[in-house]
């Protein structure tokens, strides 16, 4: 089976200062697989997500990223989105004055347009969104608010999952979506993700807690230290980290220099 995503020896620095954050990272993800990444604060997990999504401000020093066999790094941010790449933000952004519904409809129809599909009319759109919101227990009142404005941390995370369900991406990055969720919300979100997963969809789940991985069971767990993946295993690896922390892996990060 062809890889969906293939990252080969990627090195990335910040544009603003001469500092390399991703220091030779390789990772292959096949359709239908769930990969978890764990790692100490500042090891570069969010940076990796941002680079995959196409955020400005980074310089690719070397390495390649292919998505469906073509060079992902060449594509614009919105083109990547239309290709089916979705990133649930660690810190979702507030957009004052822009209603949630308007935002969601603009996003969905933009993607459809880029893909040469017909735009969804208002009635069909409403039906679709309301169904998803109901499953995630997001209130109508919440849906009428401006994007993420006045929402609690947990509400914002739920909103990210709603966007995921609506936009139906094929490759989903969840950047600490579990952080800040209460137990019930965690179950809701996990249910949302599990219902959404399929043999053609893949997930990259960034988390600090193996708790989430009880609900969303990963095929692989990677430990990221200082811009590299230093160890790959299965769910047992997450349990190990939870018990002993990262001390066993910090040395591995240094050895590779």
């Amino acid at each position: 089976m062809a890889n969906m995503l293939n990252i080969d020896d990627l090195k990335v620095s910040l544009e603003e200062e001469e500092k390399q954050i991703i220091k030779g990272l390789s990772l292959s993800i096949n359709p239908g697989e769930v990969h978890a990444i764990m790692g100490p604060n500042g090891s570069g997990k969010s940076t990796l997500s941002s680079v995959l999504a196409g955020k400005d401000g980074y310089i690719i020093d070397s390495g390649t990223v292919n998505f469906d066999g073509s060079d992902l790094l060449e594509a614009e941010v919105e083109e990547r989105a239309a290709l089916g790449i979705f990133m649930a933000f660690q810190y979702p952004i507030e957009i004052p004055g822009v209603g949630n519904m308007n935002f969601l409809r603009t996003a969905l129809n933009s993607q459809r347009k880029t893909r040469g599909q017909e735009e969804l009319n208002a009635a069909d759109f409403l039906k679709l969104v309301r169904g998803i919101a109901k499953d995630l227990e997001i209130s109508d009142e919440m849906m009428k608010r401006p994007v993420n404005v006045g929402a609690s941390g947990g509400e914002k995370k739920r909103n990210e999952i709603l966007q995921m369900c609506l936009l139906e991406p094929r490759f989903v990055i969840l950047d600490e979506t579990d952080s800040g969720l209460d137990v019930d919300a965690m179950k809701l979100v996990s249910k949302g993700v599990n219902n959404f997963s399929s043999s053609s969809r893949s997930f990259l789940v960034i988390t600090h807690y193996q708790r989430l991985l009880n609900y969303i069971v990963p095929d692989f767990v990677h430990i990221m230290v200082d811009g590299r993946i230093v160890k790959t295993g299965d769910k047992a690896l997450a349990l190990h980290v939870e018990e002993t922390g990262y001390k066993d892996f910090l040395q591995l990060g240094k050895e590779k220099h």
């Binding site: 999504a53 196409g54 955020k55 400005d56 614009e76 941010v77 919105e78 990547r80 989105a81 239309a82 979705f86 990133m87 933000f89 979702p92 952004i93 957009i95 004052p96 004055g97 822009v98 308007n102 935002f103 603009t106 996003a107 969905l108 933009s110 993607q111 880029t114 401006p146 966007q163 936009l167």
Partner: peptide, 23 residues
């Protein structure tokens, strides 16, 4: 970036944000 990650082109994203600013 948030708008564009959701598939909205840059000019449309600016228009959306500015319209929100003027709401």
């Amino acid at each position: 970036f948030y708008c564009m990650q959701r598939g909205i082109g840059e000019e449309d994203a600016v228009a959306l944000i500015v319209n929100g600013f003027c709401k």
